[in-house]
């Protein structure tokens, strides 16, 4: 099928198999490897991206359902080579250990802040509850999201 959708604010058009996952499409076809592949069954959140404002597992999203959607990946967070406030907060709060869960954490946090710019700590924890960090560095991640929210931009 011919697929047209919006990826990080830019229109994309390509020929794909409709039963390919969004994760494979991003990583294998578009060489955008910021979105990580881990469990493949929607349990770890490493592949989290934002589609039409909602956080989703890219490993469970089929290309056939993408036409016309707005997709944001971790590559879409920085602007003109400058980190977003959310990314900077992750660095400032040492919220990155091995880094493998980080893109997914960032996108879940971004999805939260888009809808709710001033979340409580409980809301932050709930928003990140679908993302596993095997280094178990959750406290710093929650603090980083809170700090980005306080600064009023993500």
């Amino acid at each position: 099928m011919k697929l047209e959708f919006i990826l990080n604010d830019k229109p994309v058009s390509l020929e794909v198999e409709p039963d390919m996952t969004l994760l494979d499409l991003l990583r294998e076809r578009l060489q955008m490897t910021g979105t990580k592949r881990s469990c493949g069954v929607g349990e770890c959140g490493a592949c989290t991206v934002i589609v039409d404002g909602e956080p989703v597992n890219a490993c469970l999203y089929l290309a056939g359902q993408l036409p016309g959607r707005w997709v944001y990946t971790v590559e879409g967070l920085s602007k003109d080579g400058k980190l977003s406030a959310l990314q900077q907060a992750f660095l400032d709060h040492h919220a990155v250990q091995c880094g493998f869960c980080t893109p997914g954490m960032l996108m879940s946090a971004k999805a939260l802040l888009l809808k709710n710019p001033h979340p409580t700590e409980a809301e932050i924890r709930r928003a990140l509850s679908g993302n596993l960090c095997r280094c178990t560095g959750y406290e710093a991640i929650v603090e980083a999201v809170g700090a980005a929210a306080e600064r009023g931009s993500s």
Partner: peptide, 9 residues
């Protein structure tokens, strides 16, 4: 149900 990502879908 599931997680925020699962509940989106």
């Amino acid at each position: 149900v599931g997680s925020p990502q699962i509940r989106s879908r």
